[in-house]
């Protein structure tokens, strides 16, 4: 997994609440057996006209935000499906950090597995960041995971919370399957006890 340590980038404002996973990556693009290549389809239903041309009213199509790597958005972002295609599409597009008042649980967890940092902040703080973001390419926002701190374009600092285990994995780009497999003995002990207490669960 890619590391996430510190990011200085343009932030795109997308203040809509309840942006669902069907909106982030419509179902017709789920028919892939790969993790990559979905960026061009991200937000496709609201990003393109029927003829495939870009909609000017969609923020990521605007010149100032084409290279945005941060998304500042509305509450309950990523609600709906468990499809990891949603963070895959955002990552492939270039988004590495999403800041919102709240996230849907499954999407939130999926971000960390793909080197994307989701940050939860109160709506009042989000409103300030949306103001900053609306200044487009003139307003670079810096997200420092090590210090758990966001620096605005005018030097203001905002601190944020993140789960220590997820932070550790992101900072070091760790494959958590590898970490869990180091605990194989503990898992086998647990299983051995379970075989005794609930034998009907085991067929092998």
């Amino acid at each position: 997994m890619d590391k996430f340590t510190k990011l200085s980038a343009v932030a795109a404002p997308l203040p809509m609440p309840n942006i669902d996973t069907d909106m982030i990556i419509p179902q017709k693009h789920l028919k892939t057996i790969k993790r990559t290549g979905l960026g061009k389809f991200s937000f496709s239903n609201i990003r393109y006209h029927d003829d495939g041309s870009e909609r000017e009213d969609f923020v990521l199509n605007q010149t100032a935000y084409r290279n945005a790597e941060i998304l500042v958005t509305g509450e309950n972002f990523g609600c709906g499906s468990s499809r990891e295609h949603a963070p895959w599409a955002l990552k492939d597009f270039g988004i590495k950090c999403i800041i919102a008042p709240s996230f849907a649980d499954i999407f939130y967890g999926n971000c960390f597995k793909n080197g994307i940092l989701p940050i939860i902040l109160p709506q009042a703080v989000i409103d300030l960041l949306l103001d900053d973001a609306s200044r487009g390419a003139n307003a670079i926002i810096t997200v420092d995971l090590e210090r758990q701190e966001i620096s605005g374009p005018d030097g203001g600092k905002i601190s944020f919370e993140v789960d220590p285990y997820r932070r550790h994995c992101l900072l070091n780009g760790l494959d958590d399957i590898g970490l869990t497999l180091e605990k194989k003995d503990v898992i086998q002990d647990f299983e051995a006890k379970k075989r005794l207490s609930q034998p009907w669960l085991f067929k092998d």
Binding site: R35, S81, S82, R83, E84, P87, I106, G109, N110, K113, N114, D176, I177, T180
Partner: peptide, 9 residues
Amino acid sequence: GIGTSEVEH
């Protein structure tokens, strides 16, 4: 429900 990375985990 879980994402594909967790499916693999």
